[in-house]
Design a protein around this nucleic acid. Structure first.
Lengths: 191, 191
DNA sequence: ACGGCAAGCAAGTAGGTACTTGCATACACA
DNA sequence: TGTGTATGCAAGTACCTACTTGCTTGCCGT
């Protein structure tokens, strides 16, 4: 029963590259090193195979928490943003395909947006903590700032492979985004 | 010779919805209210048709300038961001398809990234002007801040239709993004 | 040694896709 | 009045796609 996993993996790779329409069963079978018939015997249909693919891609989307209470915002956020960036970057090709097929295959919607709310909440709570502790401007527009930070991470993961010169060097990016974010909610730089 | 334009328009719409593979010549012809044969007689092949589509989508991507010198940054940027947001929002479906097909059809790459550099430059110049005039913090990370603002506009245009609750109300969004941006480069709020 | 089971292989079905061909129609301009 | 030119229509070609069927092979536990 090792075929099942090889097919799932291969289907994920092929789907990320070519989308649902372009991911032919022939291609997937070849990529998995498996006979095409085995694919149908195992999953029944192409549609069912991709449901299984999206289901298993589910697990890898757990989001890390942020410390409560905050101790060193710049440091803590930089690490968190770096991890988040990496996570989105890994999901990038599959995410893009899923989004581009939203109209035709609405069932991928929750895969595509999954996690965004949670991420928003984590960052908002953390920032609210900073406000309560008097370390962030209580009049700051935390909601907009958080939205911008999340969009920046998404935009970086999505756009960097296409136009790298539009983004800070990858090793500096998380810290620089975080610094801008902190300034925008009125947290003084720690160094 | 009115067919040519009707086919081009229809092809753009169908492509934006279904992508290159899903945009069958049959569908396009039906959408254009034209016989499928006319499509081939006019453009030769499906590939050639889409080259023409991307070429004509070229024109609509002119970017507005920002005043030099800056007078009222919040006001000027809010208007500019609002227009840019609208522009990207209109291009959204086609952009998404183009990006998702980058691997298979590299010729769409320049359509997908076109304008990003220019936008970056316009905002950077404008911010540099603010710094020279002593109205922005000269130590601010303008590059990162501009990148974040652009990503925010992209992220808004792309993500709002999917997860509207993650973004500020559309009529407030440009101003709130701009305010965060200005704070992050150390421009004091004007009101 | 034998039965069951996963997998491969060859072939076929039914439908879709890009693209072609031959012929009919209608309008435009000379 | 005639002639080109754009378009429609019906049919066909060659290929691809998801999916099926029938048969064979090899391995594993009993």
């Amino acid at each position: 029963m090792v075929s099942r996993e090889r097919i799932l993996e291969a289907a994920g790779r092929v789907y990320a590259k070519h989308g649902f329409r372009g991911a032919t069963t022939r291609l997937i079978a070849a990529e998995a090193g498996v006979n095409e018939v085995t694919l149908f015997r195992t999953f029944g249909s192409k549609g069912a195979l991709f449901e299984a693919v999206l289901e298993q891609s589910d697990v890898c989307s757990e989001v890390n928490p942020l410390p409560d209470p905050a101790v060193d915002p710049e440091e803590e956020l930089t690490i968190w943003v770096g991890e988040h960036l990496q996570r989105i970057h890994d999901l990038r090709p599959m995410l893009i395909q899923a989004i581009s097929e939203l109209d035709e295959r609405p069932e991928v919607a929750d895969f595509a947006c999954r996690g965004r709310d949670e991420v928003h909440e984590i960052l908002t709570d953390y920032s609210a903590g900073l406000q309560r502790a008097g370390r962030a401007d209580s009049a700051a527009d935390v909601f907009a700032a958080v939205t911008m930070l999340i969009s920046s991470v998404m935009g970086d993961a999505m756009g960097r492979p296409m136009v790298p010169e539009s983004f800070p060097p990858i090793d500096e990016a998380p810290r620089r985004y975080v610094r801008c974010f902190l300034r925008s909610i009125g947290v003084a730089s720690s160094r």
